[in-house]
C-alpha cells in the first residue's frame, strides 16, 4: 500500500469512527441542525418584520442580515465541528489508543477537518433551505463566489478550532468550554451583522485582521450592489493563510509539550 493510500485509510478510519457514532445517535444529528435553524428563525423573522415596517432599504439590509447569519454559521459550525469531534475522543477516553496507533497528528487534523465539513453542511444546508422557504432568501443567488466565501469562513473555523484543540492538549478537558464559546468572542469584530464602518475607529484595526470581516464586507457588496469585491476576498485569503499557519504552529508546539509533560496520559482529567 502506498504512503498516500495508507494515510488516506487512516484518515478514513477516524472518520468512520465518528460517522458510526452519528448512525447510533439521532440526538447528535438533531443537535447539528438545531442551532443554525433556530438562529435562522430568530434573525429571519426579525429581518422580515423590519422590512415590512420600514420599506425597501430595510428589506435589502434584512437580506444582508440573513446572509450574514447563514454564512457566520459556516465558521461557527466548522470550528465547533472540529473541536467537538476531538472532544468526543477525550470523553470516550479513547485518545490513548489513537495516539499509540500509526495515525500521524496531521492525519488526525485532516480527519477532524473532514468531519467538521460534514457537520457544518448538516447544519447550514437545512438553515439555508429554511431561509429560502420562509424569507425567499436564496443564498445560492450569490453565484460561484459563494464557494469562496464558504471556503474562507471554513478555514477561519478550522484555524480557531486547531487553536482550541491545542489548548485542550495543553490544559486538558478544563479548556473544553472554549470549544463552544471562543468564536463568539470574535463575532463583534467579524462584521457579520453590520459593516466595519459601524465600529468605533479604535477597534477597526482588530476587525481588519479578522478574515471573516473581509468576507462579510464582500458579501454585503455582492448582495447590495451585485459587485464582487475581489480585494476583500484577497485579504480574507491572505489573513486566513496567516491564521492557519499560526494555528498549525501552535498545535505542533502544544502536541510536543503534551508529549513532554505526559498530558496525553491524563488528558481526560
Amino acid at each position: 500500500m502506498s504512503g498516500f493510500s495508507a494515510s488516506a485509510r487512516r484518515i478514513w478510519g477516524m472518520m468512520f469512527r465518528h460517522l458510526a457514532l452519528f448512525r447510533r445517535s439521532w440526538p447528535r444529528l438533531v443537535e447539528l441542525m438545531y442551532w443554525p435553524v433556530l438562529q435562522m428563525c430568530i434573525w429571519g423573522f426579525t429581518a422580515s418584520f423590519l422590512a415590512t415596517r420600514t420599506g425597501s432599504p430595510a428589506a435589502l439590509a434584512g437580506g444582508a442580515l440573513i446572509g450574514g447569519v447563514l454564512l457566520w454559521e459556516v465558521s461557527l459550525r466548522s470550528q465547533m465541528g472540529m473541536s467537538i469531534t476531538f472532544l468526543e475522543e477525550i470523553w470516550s477516553r479513547n485518545l490513548g489508543h489513537v495516539f499509540v496507533s500509526p495515525l500521524r497528528p496531521g492525519e488526525l487534523v485532516a480527519a477532524l477537518i473532514c468531519m467538521s465539513f460534514l457537520r457544518m453542511m448538516a447544519g447550514v444546508i437545512p438553515a439555508a433551505l429554511l431561509a429560502w422557504a420562509l424569507y425567499a432568501f436564496n443564498m445560492f443567488a450569490l453565484g460561484p463566489v459563494l464557494v469562496l466565501f464558504f471556503l474562507n469562513l471554513m478555514i477561519l473555523g478550522w484555524s480557531v478550532a486547531l487553536a482550541v484543540v491545542s489548548l485542550i492538549l495543553r490544559h486538558g478537558a478544563g479548556a473544553e468550554a472554549l470549544a463552544w464559546s471562543v468564536l463568539f468572542g470574535i463575532t463583534p469584530f467579524a462584521a457579520v451583522f453590520y459593516p466595519v464602518s459601524a465600529l468605533p475607529a479604535v477597534v477597526r484595526p482588530i476587525a481588519f485582521i479578522v478574515p471573516a470581516s473581509h468576507v462579510f464586507e464582500g458579501m454585503r457588496a455582492a448582495l447590495l450592489t451585485g459587485v464582487i469585491d475581489w480585494g476583500e476576498l484577497g485579504w480574507a485569503f491572505a489573513l486566513n493563510v496567516v491564521w492557519l499557519i499560526a494555528a498549525a504552529w501552535l498545535f505542533r508546539r502544544q502536541f510536543q509539550v503534551a508529549r513532554t509533560r505526559g498530558a496525553l496520559l491524563s488528558i481526560g482529567e
Binding site: M1, A6, R9, R10, W12, G13, M14, F16, R17, A20, L21, R24, S25, E88, S92, R93, N94, G96, H97, V98, V100, S101, P102, L103
Partner: peptide
C-alpha cells in the same frame, strides 16, 4: 506494535465490530 490496557477505553457507543474496523483502518 500494539497496546492494551483496561484503563484506556474504546468508544462506548460503537459496536465491537465497528471499534475493530476503526483500528483495522488505523493499522492498515
Amino acid at each position: 506494535m500494539n497496546f492494551s490496557s483496561p484503563y484506556v477505553a474504546l468508544p462506548h457507543r460503537l459496536t465491537v465490530r465497528e471499534n475493530l474496523q476503526v483500528y483495522g483502518h488505523l493499522y492498515n
